[in-house]
């Protein structure tokens, strides 16, 4: 693996340079929030930030996406084609937890049988640059409990690690090495890096003090769909979509036809299992009538069904749902409470 050193104050400029001719999606300050946004020409990305409020999954799986356009005619409709292929892009400043979300989402959208062309196209053309968490940003972080690591390069093409005066760039994949050539001449990284990384990784992982039971609670979940415990978590839930819309791994969507006069669009938009409409059937019947059932679904999907299907927990431990739930329903506590049952 190739490694290079990038001077601390040069990084933002390098990425700004990339944005001259490439689509770059990066963390920027947007009033009170740090958000992933398209880096407009001349803008510099943040390199020192905790984590973004919106998850970078938005780039591959946007909140709304036109799948095709059509012309509504007096009888039937005429297909106007599907949106063109996307351009090469760089996704800069992804935290390792969020980068793992791409690996998890690939299970869904890049399934050999049901390949989602929109997601896969962007995924293939995008080079992902992560900024490792040498100092995990939040006490709500719990990546190490769900299969992640603050210095992990899983799902990453280029991993940047803070060494004080310099960023150490690890070019993990071929895509990453291709990008390295675009960055110009950079000094090589330390030969002894591998051994030093170990100590850094251990320190970073040690700083994550929140522990939740991950796969350990799976046997309980397998057996206890009807357990009274499920009555105890939803009472204060507002049934809003904050947790699911900020979550890097939530991926449920709805497909609707949006028609203005005769211009039709088939649109895929995010949906949330927290909404009653999510399971509302055309007949008027709703198999999930209460927030209890919706909460159980959300938790089970992450900690049981996804594990059944793909042998991984559909949670990367970023802490967004913990910090931004308006009524402080804490998924860490739910997992911990279940482990005590």
């Amino acid at each position: 693996m190739e490694t290079r050193l990038i001077k601390k104050d040069l990084l933002a400029g390098l990425i700004k340079g990339l944005a001259q001719d490439t689509l770059v999606y990066a963390p920027v300050q947007d009033e009170d929030n740090v958000l992933f946004k398209v880096l407009e020409k001349g803008m510099e990305p943040l390199t020192e930030y905790d984590n973004t409020k919106n998850a970078p999954k938005n780039f591959f799986f946007p909140q709304q996406e036109t799948l095709m356009r059509y012309l509504k005619k007096e009888r039937g409709s005429e297909l106007l084609g599907v949106p063109g292929v996307t351009a090469e892009a760089v996704l800069f400043g992804v935290r390792p937890c969020d980068a793992r979300s791409f690996v998890l989402l690939d299970n869904i959208f890049d399934d050999p049988q049901y390949r989602d062309p929109y997601y896969v196209d962007r995924r293939e053309k995008t080079t992902i640059i992560s900024i490792a968490c040498t100092r995990p940003p939040y006490t709500a972080c719990f990546c190490t409990s769900v299969g992640g690591h603050p210095l992990s390069s899983e799902g990453v093409d280029v991993s940047l690690i803070d060494l004080g005066d310099n960023w150490l760039a690890e070019f993990v994949t071929e895509k990453g090495e291709k990008l390295m050539k675009k960055l110009g001449d950079l000094p090589k990284g330390d030969e002894q890096w591998a051994s030093k990384k170990e100590a850094l990784a251990e320190k970073a992982a040690g700083a994550i003090t929140t522990k939740i039971p991950g796969k350990d609670i799976k046997p309980w979940l397998d057996e206890n769909f009807d357990h009274p415990f499920w009555d105890t978590i939803h009472a204060s839930c507002l049934a809003c979509g904050t947790c699911t819309y900020l979550c890097p791994t939530c991926h449920c969507f709805d497909i609707t036809d949006e028609i203005k006069k005769s211009d039709g669009r088939r649109v895929r938009s995010w949906d949330s299992c927290m909404y009653w409409l999510f399971t509302h059937e055309t007949s008027g019947h709703n198999p999930r009538t209460s927030q209890k059932q919706r909460w159980r679904q959300r938790f089970m999907h992450k900690f049981k069904y996804f594990v059944d299907n793909f042998d991984a927990i559909a949670c990367v431990g970023c802490g967004r749902c913990v910090m931004y739930c308006p009524v402080n329903i804490d998924i860490r506590k739910i997992a911990q409470d279940i482990s005590k049952l």
Binding site: N54, Q63, L238, A239, C240, G241, Y245, P326
Partner: peptide, 24 residues
């Protein structure tokens, strides 16, 4: 433009109690 349509505002609002909101 900041809104992500999570409906937290509507759902917490005591004055927003329509059984089915016009949005849905």
């Amino acid at each position: 433009a900041k809104c992500i349509r999570c409906y937290a505002c509507r759902n917490t609002c005591p004055s927003c109690y329509c059984k089915v909101c016009f949005v849905e």
